[in-house]
Amino acid sequence: KVKWIFENVPGIRKRAENGEILFGTVDSWLIYKLTGNHSTEPSNASRTLLYNISTGDWDSEILKELKIPQAILPRIIPSSGNFGKTRKDLFGKEIPVTGVAGDQQAALFGQTCFENGSVKITYGTGCFTLMNTGKVPVFSKNKLLTTVAWDIGKGREYALEGSIFIAGAVIQWLRDELKIIDTAPLSEKLALSVKDTGGVYFVPAFVGLGAPYWDPDVRGTIVGLTRGTNRAHLVRAALESIAFQSKDLINAMEQDVNSGVETVKADGGASLNSFLMQFQADLLNKPVILPQIAETTALGAAYLAGLYTGYWENTDDVKRNWQARKKFSPSMKEGQRKKMLKMWTRAVETAEGFKPL
Rank of each mutant, 00 (worst) to 15 (best):
H233N: 10
K247P: 00
D282C: 06
K319R: 11
A169I: 03
D176F: 12
I166T: 15
V2Y: 14
A107G: 05
L66E: 14
A281H: 00
A298I: 12
L22D: 01
T226V: 05
V136C: 08
M277P: 00
Q255L: 14
E177D: 14
Y303S: 08
E157N: 12
S331T: 07
L357G: 03
S54N: 13
T146V: 14
E161D: 05
K339Y: 00
D215I: 14
T98Q: 06
D217Q: 07
P137C: 11
E254T: 10
P42E: 09
A305G: 05
L90H: 08
F128K: 12
F328W: 08
Q292W: 06
E352G: 02
E254Q: 15
D182E: 14
A159N: 10
A107H: 04
R325A: 15
T98K: 01
S39M: 15
T197G: 04
V288R: 08
V138Y: 09
S274F: 01
P216Y: 14
G84W: 02
L290D: 03
P185K: 05
E188F: 00
I72G: 04
N258I: 07
I180M: 09
V9C: 07
P96L: 00
K319L: 15
E41G: 11
L239V: 08
D182Q: 12
D317R: 03
Y51T: 12
K141E: 09
R227N: 07
S331H: 07
N285H: 00
Y51P: 05
